[in-house]
């Protein structure tokens, strides 16, 4: 397969003495990335160093010297990291349990696509009612006599965390499921015939082969949670406990009209994400990263 593709490439290239014209096919993609990602990014980076007043790093100095701004990093991390850990932590056992193609696997995968397609705003609106003081959740708890007064789950930290779980979990589940189903089930069978029980099979075979994939899932889930915005406003308390970094950037840009400071906040956000991703991926480097099949044959 790969050989035949390579051969046809060579044949086309042969007409033009060494210059492979099929390379031109990447041009639209590269242009797209340059125009819509690299240029705006560099523009924002430049903008962040041309503050309204003060020296070129004044925005960054202001951010880190103003607790109201710098605190948003911790507020966001305190939402994004638990949400990511919960999502990956629960998606892994569920996906592992459903690793064999079956009816439950299809049904649950299908059901979990729904929150992804609905989008964060609709999910936030739904949760607002469901978890609200008059919502089903509180009513049910009161009916069962577990609580006397409604638990406050909206307009605070917990509401935002819930929405991050609801929207993030399906994504993580589907990603992990695709990684798990890529592992040859014969490996676990071989381990079983060699005396490995279910726990040993998971720890010795599945987990090491899954670890690189889990690291990628963790990074993606974290980045998605870290950029939380609609649900932090709709379900949270955007003035204090869920004043995440995106809200700070939004306020700088559209309430104070300080695009330069907003860009600086966006750059800081980017840097925090990069640090976390770098840490996770360097841990991933400790694991085996080849194909998860049995052999080439």
């Amino acid at each position: 397969m790969a050989g035949s593709v390579a051969k046809s490439t060579v044949w086309i290239a042969g007409q033009n003495a060494g210059v492979d014209r099929t390379v031109l096919l990447v041009v639209p993609g590269v242009l797209f990335v340059i125009l819509l990602f690299i240029y705006p990014f560099l523009y924002g980076l430049g903008l962040s160093f041309t503050p309204k007043e003060g020296g070129f790093a004044a925005n960054y100095a202001k951010f880190f010297s103003t607790p109201y701004l710098s605190q948003t990093i911790w507020t966001t991390l305190s939402l994004a990291i638990p949400a990511t850990v919960i999502n990956v932590g629960f998606a892994l056992p569920l996906a592992f349990h459903l690793r064999h193609a079956s009816r439950p696997q299809r049904i649950i995968s299908g059901l979990l696509v729904v929150p992804i397609t609905l989008g964060t705003v609709l999910v936030a609106e739904g949760l607002l009612t469901y978890l609200g003081p008059q919502g089903w959740f509180n009513r049910a708890l009161i009916e069962f006599g577990l609580i006397n007064t409604p638990v406050k789950l909206t307009h605070n930290y917990w509401g935002v965390l819930m929405s991050l779980v609801v929207t993030g979990f399906p994504f993580d589940f589907l990603l992990i499921l695709s990684y798990i189903t890529g592992i040859d089930p014969a490996l676990a069978q071989a381990a079983a015939t060699l005396g490995a029980g279910p726990i040993q099979r998971f720890r010795q075979i599945y987990l090491p082969l899954l670890a690189p994939g889990l690291a990628v899932v963790f990074c993606l889930a974290f980045v998605l949670s870290f950029s939380v915005f609609p649900s932090a406003i709709l379900l949270g308390n955007p003035a204090s406990s869920t004043r995440v970094i995106t809200i700070a950037a939004y306020q700088a840009a559209y309430e104070d009209y300080d695009y330069s400071l907003a860009s600086a906040i966006a750059m800081i956000m980017c840097a925090v994400q990069l640090v976390i991703v770098a840490v996770v991926l360097s841990i991933r480097g400790l694991f085996y990263r080849g194909p998860a099949g049995g052999a080439k044959g």
């Binding site: 381990a191 998860a292 099949g293 052999a295």
Partner: peptide, 16 residues
């Protein structure tokens, strides 16, 4: 895992 037989699989199923 309780039978203790040795098995050789068609695709070898070596732990990669």
């Amino acid at each position: 895992e309780e039978r203790g037989f040795g098995m050789v699989f068609q695709n070898y199923a070596l732990f990669p």
